[in-house]
Design a protein around this nucleic acid. Structure first.
Length: 117
DNA sequence: CTACTGACCTAAT
DNA sequence: GATTAGGCCAGTA
């Protein structure tokens, strides 16, 4: 056996992909789901992040497809996310990020490799 | 089992 | 830009 570990769970696959997002770049819920092999399960990504929104993974680098912060304004995490993004030199205006500028374009082979464990 | 809820997405308006 | 509608799907009550 080349690999005797059990397959990654959906949540583990999502977290693996999120960890691959480089500092200074962002991705979206839908894209993360696609990269993790979970087509059309964008909503599940938000659940997976909420489960582990500790320091363990860069949850702040995940925003919605419109480039906006997905958390409701007024929620402390909303401001926390903006703060974390700005620490990485990502500009946030009116709760919005320029996807053209900061969107992460992962390498397919690297993705497959990272998810194979 | 059904009903409701979301840190969602796309297309249409 | 903003809002709506329909689709999506796991979790929860």
């Amino acid at each position: 056996m080349l690999n005797n570990s059990k397959p990654l769970s959906d949540i583990e696959r999502i977290q693996t992909v999120v960890k691959m997002i480089p500092a200074g770049q962002v991705s979206t819920y839908g894209r993360i789901a696609d990269y993790a092999g979970l087509l059309h399960k964008a909503r599940y990504v938000s659940y997976a992040l909420a489960q582990a929104s500790h320091d363990s993974l860069p949850w702040h680098r995940v925003i919605n497809s419109q480039g906006k912060i997905a958390i409701a304004k007024g929620n402390p995490s909303y401001f926390k996310q903006i703060e974390l993004l700005r620490l990485e030199a990502i500009q946030v205006n009116h709760g919005r990020v320029n996807l053209k500028q900061y969107l992460w374009h992962p390498d397919a082979a690297t993705l497959i490799f990272s998810l194979s464990f």
